[in-house]
Design a protein around this nucleic acid. Structure first.
Lengths: 188, 188
DNA sequence: GTCTATATCTCGATAGAC
DNA sequence: GTCTATCGAGATATAGAC
């Protein structure tokens, strides 16, 4: 049962996901062949096809986990009053989510937009991010405040961006969080 | 004289650059074949090879123009006193540069990091951006202020980013500039 | 579940005529 | 400067044995 949730006879599927993501981040999706993935795992290409129907399916499985996690975050946020505290807690949880589990995937997505678009995973992911943004922007109509809210989200993943993020040393996560929290706070 | 600066007998070279960049932005560098570029120009692949030695060379030529423009901006900035006014004017000029001439290239770079890295154009470009960042950060040691400075630059190109930029309507350039200017201003 | 072997395709790049 | 024709490499994906 390759696609099954339980009944694991081995952890090969997870190892494929891990190694594939590693290589996608290193060299990009299109520059990573199934041969490379198989070699790093010390199996053959054909073995990969037992666990994933296509190369694209590997990406789908990676993004799906992220979308699920974002959905849980949104569930929490939806049933909370729309206050500054809620918004800041949303940022904290998003920050923790990225730092703890999804830094590689976010890294991958940010740097491989054409691939992500082509695979059609942009729409489900975009929806979640749009909703997160909407929660963070409740009661805000000022376009400048809206842009600051967007930048707050960007601040939390900026370390992953080699253009403006990697231009110098990566800021510690707590610094990024402080700046982000300030950006969504009402102006003084 | 394919690589020549003057002596133009036709504008094919520029048309290739334009169409190639267009497709690179649309579908990504790796998903754009020379066949597609040639078809959209209504010539054959072989014709492209008269003007550019390789596919990578097309990208090199596109980035080179950006690096030159950034260098001119830096030349101006270097021989100015390190004041808040200078920094804000640097942001204004950078914003104008992007909006007027380099929006497609910035778009392309942001979304095709693996390709840009592989072609080795990241280093010259990264140097310029690092220096721009250094000019904007003069006299600043506070890591939070440094991060805000980075976010100011990001704000100016955020509209090109489909993850956090395209999550909703793109902010008008003047709004982005206002927010950016505020981010590098001393805190109140 | 993993292997060997292979089919099929598309790409970047070149040769040489005009 | 642009064409036709083609080469060789490397990619995804499949077939079938074990």
């Amino acid at each position: 049962m390759p696609g099954g949730t339980v009944g694991r006879r081995s952890d090969t599927r997870e190892r494929i996901q891990h190694v594939a993501l590693e290589l996608f981040v290193e060299h990009g999706y299109e520059n990573t062949s199934l041969r490379e993935i198989a070699e790093r795992l010390d199996v053959t290409k054909a073995a990969l096809y037992y666990h994933f129907r296509t190369k694209e399916d590997i990406v789908h499985s990676l993004i799906a986990d992220l979308v699920t996690a974002l959905d849980e975050l949104l569930d929490w946020g939806r049933q909370r009053p729309s206050t500054v505290e809620t918004r800041q807690e949303l940022l904290r949880r998003f920050s923790a989510l990225v730092a703890d589990r999804f830094e590689p995937v976010m890294h991958f997505i940010q740097q491989n937009i054409p691939a992500v678009k082509k695979l059609g995973v942009m729409h489900p992911l975009g929806e979640k991010l749009r909703e997160l943004f909407a929660l963070l922007c409740a009661d805000v109509d000022d376009p400048e405040a809206a842009l600051r809210t967007r930048l707050a989200l960007v601040a939390l993943v900026l370390g992953l961006n080699p253009i403006f993020g990697g231009a110098q040393a990566t800021p510690p996560p707590d610094v990024a969080l402080d700046v982000a929290l300030e950006l969504v706070a009402p102006r003084g």
